[in-house]
């Protein structure tokens, strides 16, 4: 007698952490919107020459005929037209759209660079400090305190003044960008270091870490295989929140006159230039301001979603 076939038991596939996070993230519409916007912004920045080429505009050509010296560009909204979709700037008559696109390259590059630098430094030193403890912890955290007490803006002013032309094999705006990345990145590490250190302090006492150590795991194993996966959540979330802060910081540095040399554009530079005409033609402030706003919002939405997705207690 043939036995009835045993129904194949439904195989329960275990979901990896990454898959769970991805599923939760996809369900969060705000985060998805943020994520798409970020991807779009990055693509626009990378392909700025192509995109502005499609519109037939470029960031440096002057169109003096399109503007009036006293009253600004002919036409409304900063001289918007089919040829110049976002208008031209107040007196030089350069295309605003092209400057916005090229400006995004600088602003995003600085923001990403500075974030990677400070998060990398901060996470590394935070793990070191938290895991090793004792004297190392004291020294690293006191150095961190010194950095926190450092007058960042004054330092940036001094540094751009001291290295005004050529240094480290860089010159001109390349050097300016490098300095801005360095200043913003190098002095912001203590924040993330403290967060990571606190996390490590609690993690290192947990059973799974004890177990790994009991099985003979070395420091490197414990840090990379046991601690790191648990630290990714706060680090990623912090990074997505730091990027918009850095974009705004870049704008602040430009306003202080330690941004890029003209005619290079950055969003901060565009907003600084717009301050002079804010009463007569606010469009010049609104356009780069909206660009910063959208970028900051996108990163914040994405960061929020990511935090929720990474939180095992949230459903």
């Amino acid at each position: 007698m043939r036995r009835a076939p045993v129904p194949a038991s439904k195989r329960i596939r275990s979901r990896s952490t990454a898959a769970t996070v991805w599923r939760k993230l996809k369900a969060d519409r705000a985060a998805v919107f943020g994520g798409y916007t970020i991807v779009l912004l990055i693509l626009l920045a990378v392909f700025a020459p192509v995109v502005s080429g499609l519109f037939g505009v470029d960031p440096t050509t002057l169109h003096p005929a399109l503007t009036d010296v006293t009253f600004g560009p002919h036409g409304s909204f900063g001289g918007m037209s089919w040829a110049h979709p976002l208008g031209v700037d107040q007196r030089l008559g350069r295309d605003v759209l092209a400057r916005l696109l090229y400006g995004s390259r600088v602003s995003l590059l600085i923001a990403f660079g500075a974030t990677v630098l400070s998060v990398g430094l901060g996470a590394g030193l935070g793990v070191l400090s938290g895991y090793l403890g004792g004297r190392v912890d004291t020294v690293v955290m006191r150095i961190g305190d010194v950095f926190l007490a450092f007058p960042l803006l004054l330092f940036a002013l001094g540094l751009t003044g001291a290295l005004s032309d050529e240094a480290f094999g860089l010159s001109g705006n390349g050097l300016r960008i490098a300095i801005m990345i360095f200043v913003m990145g190098f002095f912001n590490w203590p924040y993330i270091a403290r967060i990571v250190r606190a996390e490590v302090l609690s993690l290192r006492e947990r059973e799974f870490v004890d177990a790994a150590r009991a099985l003979g795991a070395g420091t490197r194993w414990v840090v990379w295989r046991e601690l790191m996966p648990n630290l990714m959540a706060p680090i990623l979330v912090y990074a997505t929140l730091l990027i918009p802060a850095n974009i705004i910081f870049e704008a602040g540095l430009s306003a202080l006159g330690i941004g890029l040399d003209p005619p290079a554009a950055s969003w901060g530079q565009m907003m600084t230039d717009a301050i002079a005409t804010v009463y007569t033609d606010p469009a010049y402030l609104i356009v780069p301001g909206m660009a910063v706003f959208i970028t900051v919002l996108a990163f914040n939405l994405f960061g929020d979603g990511l935090r929720d997705a990474l939180d095992p207690t949230a459903q």
Partner: peptide, 14 residues
Amino acid sequence: NAPDMQNAATAIQS
């Protein structure tokens, strides 16, 4: 911090 003169320099450059 002298935007007028900076723009003048940009115009000369151009």
